[in-house]
């Protein structure tokens, strides 16, 4: 049974394969050490595929969809291309980890991949967030932050503009 995790970054989607995962006691000191040590972590988690967003508009469309737990065509194509094929007769021989339970069930409904979203996935994604620039070499040296900056601006500007009343949405 292989185990993949989906990681959504400001630069694009990434799929990583988890070679061995500690299912219990993910907060134990030893497991945390293994996550923090880049060499050990890169041995247990391997990059399977990375698809950068093509344009700023494309990135904005995807970030909006992801925050609303919607599977875009980009994400669908990316997953279908990089995950092992599922035969109709048999059940899939892998699991897809997704940090957001809502998105996990959306993927399961639309694409039929068995998804999971639990503490283990959360800890693995924490590790990926720390080491992501090591997996995708193009994002080293502040390029990843540039993408976050651009996307943060366009995401936020769209949010502010979308409110025609121009008044605050108060929390009640």
């Amino acid at each position: 049974m292989s185990f993949f995790v989906l990681y959504e970054s400001a630069s694009g989607y990434a799929l990583l394969e988890v070679m061995e995962a500690e299912e219990v006691g993910s907060l134990l000191e030893e497991v945390q050490q293994a996550v923090l040590d880049p060499q050990r972590f890169c041995r247990t988690v391997k990059l399977k595929g990375f698809q950068p967003f093509t344009t700023a508009e494309n990135a904005l469309e995807n970030v909006n969809a992801i925050s609303e737990q919607i599977v875009t065509d980009d994400l669908k194509n990316f997953l279908e291309m990089n995950l092992p094929k599922v035969k109709k007769s048999k059940s899939a021989s892998f699991q897809l980890g997704c940090i957001e339970p809502g998105l996990a069930s959306a993927i399961q409904d639309r694409l039929g991949f068995p998804c999971r979203s639990d503490e283990t996935v959360k800890e693995i994604i924490r590790g990926i967030r720390v080491h992501f620039h090591r997996f995708v070499k193009e994002l080293d040296g502040g390029v990843g932050e540039k993408a976050q900056l651009g996307l943060g601006h366009s995401y936020s500007r769209a949010k502010v503009k979308m409110n025609p009343a121009r008044s605050d949405n108060m929390i009640i």
Binding site: E8, S9, A10, N62, V63, I66, S67, I99, E100, R126, R129, V130, F132, G144, E145, Q148, L149, L151, G152, H153, Y155, S156, R157, K159, V160
Partner: peptide
């Protein structure tokens, strides 16, 4: 957002801090 325009190390995120997963794509460690 206007302040962030002149300061490129500020990434503005207009979103509810109660739902960090909504802005997970925009934030690093």
């Amino acid at each position: 957002i206007n302040m962030a325009k002149s300061r490129t190390n500020v990434i503005p995120i207009i979103e509810d801090a109660r739902h960090p997963l909504k802005y997970r794509m925009l934030v690093g460690m």
